[in-house]
């Protein structure tokens, strides 16, 4: 993968487990991402409207609105938003279902930060391509 300009890339982390989310957010921040956090689906919607993140890391199992419901809402707000699902072993079925609906990828907990970085960068590249493609009709602009 070529090195995309990730500085300023906005990532929204959605997970109800505060300590996990916090630790992940700090690891991403020191690597140059602008990180926003939400502890539930409802908050994720608010943050997406307010901050327009490029990539969302979305936990599947949360109290209240779950990952699948949140996915639909976030895509309504920004059809180009790229979503990476966070899953446990038991929820791969749901991850598969959401990927077929357009999520970019999934990653299993406990996760490897390097693998997550690759996925975020690829997801961001796909977002850029899709935005450009739409803006320039069938012809491709510069990426």
């Amino acid at each position: 993968m070529e090195n995309s300009t990730k500085s300023g890339l906005k990532v929204l982390l959605v997970d109800d487990e505060d300590r996990f989310r916090n630790a992940l957010s700090r690891q991403l921040s020191v690597r140059g991402f602008r990180v926003f956090e939400a502890e539930c689906g409802e908050k994720a919607i608010e943050m997406t409207i307010a901050e327009r993140p490029d990539v969302v890391i979305l936990d599947q199992e949360m109290p209240g609105m779950n990952g699948t419901e949140a996915f639909d809402e976030l895509k309504k707000i920004d059809p180009f938003i790229e979503i990476i699902m966070l899953t446990g072993h038991a929820t791969v079925e749901i991850a598969l279902y959401i990927m077929k609906k357009g999520a970019f990828d999934y990653i299993m907990k406990p996760l490897n930060i390097d693998e997550l970085l690759y996925k975020i960068e690829d997801a961001y590249t796909r977002r850029l391509l899709n935005v450009k493609k739409t803006n320039t009709g069938s012809g491709r602009g510069l990426v």
């Binding site: 996990f20 446990g88 907990k109």
Partner: peptide, 11 residues
């Protein structure tokens, strides 16, 4: 067990 494990690895 995975949930606390995820916290441990991330921290």
């Amino acid at each position: 067990i995975n949930n606390p494990l995820a916290i441990i690895i991330a921290t």
